[in-house]
């Protein structure tokens, strides 16, 4: 690990409180996200992994009354400055943010439209209409997500007719079609069979050439297989962060060691 590390996101003293909750679900999180690396978030169920991930694209804002504190910095590709995304107020700032920080959910979420339209959806939202351009981008995205061969003859079919694993790869293709800088994945394989899981994991490893990935997983092997950096969370706090190798082989914290050894969670 002697190469130069570049931060694409930097989370500083971040706390998060759900609407109506009397105490924060995330407490004072400090975490860098490195450019073109895979960062895994691990920890027992309910420790705040999803809550954290959903803060990074401000999807929490769909529901009123949630409170963010601290800073979440995202690098501006043009100027190289780090900009605090928690400062965004206007709807179009949030839309822009979500185009830069994509998200994959626990279950595949194909939209009720054709395979082609699913992949082209984000581009069309950005105002791209040229048919030739869309066709090229759709093909490129499907190839990057290892789905092209399976669906190239049925792009006009309803996306909901695909298998679960294909649907999840479709969602990944849809997300990367708009060329985000960061891709958030919240337990993307939890609803999939082992073979489809493997395909997604291979995809993650391949995709990091293009995009920075933050992946939540409760599967220890998955974290060790796909990630470069690992963060262990417990009860809303970040307990330990380091390279995946260090976290899995020589964790500094006892709770991290216990969790990895399967003593709780």
């Amino acid at each position: 690990m002697s190469e130069k590390l570049e931060k694409v996101m930097d989370i500083k003293n971040f706390s998060f409180t759900y609407n109506g909750a009397n105490k924060p679900s995330l407490k004072n999180i400090n975490l860098p996200i490195y450019f073109k690396k895979v960062t895994a978030l691990i920890g027992p169920s309910g420790c705040g992994k999803s809550t954290f991930l959903r803060s990074l694209n401000r999807i929490h804002d769909l529901y009123p009354g949630n409170k963010y504190e601290g800073e979440i910095l995202l690098k501006d590709i043009e100027t190289g400055d780090m900009e605090n995304i928690l400062k965004y107020k206007k709807e179009n700032e949030l839309i822009k943010l979500r185009q830069r920080v994509g998200m994959i959910f626990q279950k595949p979420t194909p939209f009720p439209m054709s395979i082609f339209d699913n992949i082209a959806y984000g581009l069309r939202l950005m105002g791209k209409k040229n048919k030739k351009f869309l066709e090229e981008k759709v093909e490129e995205a499907l190839k990057s997500s290892a789905l092209w061969k399976e669906v190239k003859d049925r792009l006009k079919d309803d996306a909901r007719g695909l298998s679960g694993g294909q649907q999840q790869r479709l969602c990944i293709a849809r997300a990367i079609a708009v060329e985000p800088e960061v891709l958030l994945m919240d337990e993307p394989t939890s609803a999939l069979d082992p073979l489809s899981t493997l395909a997604i994991e291979e995809l993650v490893t391949k995709l990091k050439e293009k995009v920075t990935i933050v992946i939540v997983t409760h599967n220890m092997q998955q974290a060790s297989r796909v990630s470069d950096w690992t963060a262990f969370m417990y009860l809303g706090e970040l307990i330990e962060y380091g390279t995946t190798e260090q976290i899995f082989i020589s964790p500094h914290e006892k709770r991290t060691a216990d969790y990895i050894a399967g003593k709780f969670g």
């Binding site: 769909l62 979500r98 279950k107 979420t109 939209f111």
Partner: peptide, 26 residues
């Protein structure tokens, strides 16, 4: 499903676009 609407918002859709493209077809 909420998760479907959230997916569309996560692509940068507005409320109007989510209603038109996701909820109505669904």
């Amino acid at each position: 499903p909420n998760i479907l609407k959230e997916s569309a918002y996560a692509m940068g859709a507005t409320k109007f676009e989510v209603i038109k493209d996701i909820i109505f077809p669904y």
